[in-house]
Design a binder for these strands. Structure first.
Lengths: 221, 221
DNA sequence: GTTAGAATCACTGTCAACAGTCGAGTGCTG
DNA sequence: CAGCACTCGACTGTTGACAGTGATTCTAAC
């Protein structure tokens, strides 16, 4: 078939551990596994159709990501976030993304970066009428890009290990509140600040965005 | 025996996994397991006298801490840090500790906090003539305290998950260079800045400390 | 000498089973 | 009926073994 576009991008051959990890993470951040719920290894391994050993490796990682908390005798349960913890998470997140913004400001040639960020916002804009999940997804993608584009792997990795907690915060507060943080204009502001190269302005913009996002999540309406 | 002080602090009943984790972490950050070295599960499990399953759980955690890097087919090796990565790590570290300093500045009553921090520096001072390892240990303890005293668990946890990488950076650059970052005066400056409550001054002091520390580690003498 | 193919090796991925331990019942005793 | 020892059940901690798969070595044909 001449002219046909062949896109055989290597079969999804993730290990069972990784699949279980992704599956559990989604189940937790989507609320299917409610906060406080006890997780029984034998139960989960049967649900996922994998052995306990394989499952335990995935659970350890989720524990370190802060999605699970360990009780006495190694019993795990889905972590419950109170308002202070949500604020704390967003404070750390703000610090990380501020660093990202500052780093991007110092790049001599920011053209391509600015372009990428605007594209990410375009996606958000295009999804205005889409489901809450998709809109939140596009928001996370923007902020992840912020970190990724710095080229600082440690920064990206640190942010990613916080991602689960961020999603839990949004879930905990309710998805409606989560999307209310996704004003396209505010995100454009961030990119503009980076575009000017004014690091302290960028920092300020990010902090305002994060503070209001956190307030929005925990505030009483 | 009247008057005798009984200090039975619960027996050290850590799981084998935790023991292996600590043991491996020490071996890596001390350089006994050199960067780039391939880790063979069967080999390690025999050395540590534990089963592979238990070992694997510990390895996953070290991988997530950034001490190990995964090659093709799940083969793990001790991560090798180049100069850029060290700078990146210290940039993230600076962002986290800046947040810590700022948070402490905003506390209405900082007395006890200031006191704790000065005590940590006193320990550093007392260890002036001690071994390099002990001095570095006391330095890390000061910076960890900075994060712990904020009461922000997420901040502390994030910092801690970076701790291994920081230690590797110091080891990579050589312990002598590491201790040259440990001027007592500079640490007192940080505490003083927090004492005044001037958040931006504290932030600036931390950043200067971290930048010079990173430069010191990677710079050519 | 070179190289395709076969046999072997060195690992990791995955699993099922055993052992230990804490808590919930359960029955016995006063 | 209260209290105490005992048993049972439910989990987690830990282990050894099997299976699969690239890499490596060996062999043989050209």
């Amino acid at each position: 078939m001449p002219g046909s576009v062949v896109t055989l991008l290597g079969l999804e051959k993730k290990s069972l551990r990784e699949q279980a990890l992704a599956s559990l993470r989604t189940a937790i951040t989507s609320g299917q596994l409610a906060p406080g719920r006890h997780l029984v290894e034998t139960e989960l391994s049967e649900m996922l159709q994998i052995s306990r050993g394989t499952l335990r490796e995935a659970l350890r990682q989720l524990e370190q990501e802060g999605l699970l908390s360990a009780g006495p005798r190694g019993r795990l349960s889905v972590r419950h976030l109170d308002e202070k913890e949500i604020k704390d998470i967003f404070a750390v997140r703000a610090a990380l993304e501020s660093l990202a913004a500052r780093t991007l400001c110092e790049l001599p040639d920011r053209m391509a970066v600015i372009e990428s960020l605007h594209q990410a916002i375009d996606v958000m804009e295009a999804l205005r009428g889409a489901s809450l999940e998709e809109r939140i997804e596009s928001d996370m993608e923007f902020h992840r890009s912020l970190c990724r584009l710095t080229g600082n792997e440690t920064l990206l990795h640190t942010w990613t290990s916080l991602e689960g907690s961020i999603r839990m915060s949004i879930m905990f507060a309710g998805l409606e509140r989560g999307v209310s943080n996704m004003s396209v204009e505010r995100h454009r502001d961030i990119v503009s600040a980076i575009d000017t190269g004014d690091a302290s302005l960028a920092r300020k913009t990010i902090h305002e965005h994060m503070d209001s996002a956190a307030d929005n999540l925990v505030g009483t309406p």
